[in-house]
Amino acid sequence: MAELTCLSDGMRDALARWQDTLRAVDGRAENTITAYRSDVQGFLSFLAVHFGDSLGPAALGRVKVADMRAWMAQERAAGLSARSLARALSAVKTFAGWLAEREGYDVTAILATRSPKFRRKLPRPLAEDAARAMLDTVEIQSGEPWVAARDVAVVTLLYGCGLRISEAIGLRGADWPFGEALRIRGKGNKERIVPVLAAASDAVAEYVALCPHDLAPEEALFRGKKGGALNPRLIAKVMERSRLQLGLPASATPHAMRHSFATHLLNAGGDLRSIQELLGHASLSTTQAYTAVDTARLMEVYRSAHPKA
């Protein structure tokens, strides 16, 4: 993280107030706020050296297009990827826009800077038969029946409900029994309602029946062997062992089960807007990546099967 010694008290105060706004008003996740702060501090530290003096809030109004180009060139030369630079620029624009709105500075040069182009990574879902095989194989990784049931329950929630691993691990005893739907608090503290399939409820019910620990309402639903909250790394490890046995690629991770949920739902005729709501994506453009996966797979089939391809 960039040092703050080159920033004036006013700039440090502005940074702190901006973070408070991201947290309280925008509902951004702490990991997002931490990443944004690091990106913005790096930019401000560059400006302090570039301008040759202690940096106050008004300095953002002095930034020209050439200054932005110099910062981006330095970051790329230091090895920052185009994707990471695009994220850093987004953070800088968010901060500059917030400050300009409150202080009246002209930050047009910052806001008008174009993001570097990069190829977005497509989600890497499992095929339907591979997803089912993963569930079956996860079940046989542990000799302790309650641990095996726990691992299957968690992975079933990832695939059957499209949950993030953090969302599944974050469920509390009070959330059980699920009923027909779950109220999930995801990224940015945003809530969404997720339908629960019978298979997911059944998997969790088996785990709850076998779990030797008291699943108090305020405590974690999924537990480690010693009774503490389950470490998500354990689910990643059990899936890693399973994928090696199945001969699946390294991309067969817990998050791939969520990708599989979305892709298989889309293939079955689900509409993008509904899938966006189920996944908790803030932007439809994020969900649209699954249409690219479907198109890419279709072209692979075309190239392999068409006589003139």
Rank of each mutant, 00 (worst) to 15 (best):
E3A: 15
L7F: 10
D13T: 12
L22F: 00
A24N: 08
G27N: 13
A29P: 15
A29G: 14
I33H: 02
T34I: 12
T34Y: 11
L47V: 09
A48H: 06
G52I: 15
D53C: 12
K64Y: 07
V65A: 10
Q74A: 15
S84E: 10
A86K: 08
S90V: 08
L99P: 01
R102Y: 00
G104D: 11
T108P: 08
A109Y: 04
L111T: 10
F118W: 12
I140D: 09
A149H: 02
V152R: 02
L157S: 02
L158K: 03
G162Y: 02
S166K: 07
S166Q: 12
G170M: 12
A174L: 06
P177S: 06
G179C: 04
I184H: 09
V194Y: 09
S201K: 01
C211V: 10
D214R: 14
D214Q: 13
A216Q: 15
E219Q: 15
R223A: 06
G227T: 13
A229M: 11
P232K: 04
R233I: 13
V238A: 08
R241G: 11
R243F: 01
Q245F: 07
Q245R: 14
P254I: 05
H255D: 02
F261A: 00
A262Q: 03
L265N: 04
L266N: 03
S274A: 15
G280Y: 03
Q288M: 06
P307L: 05
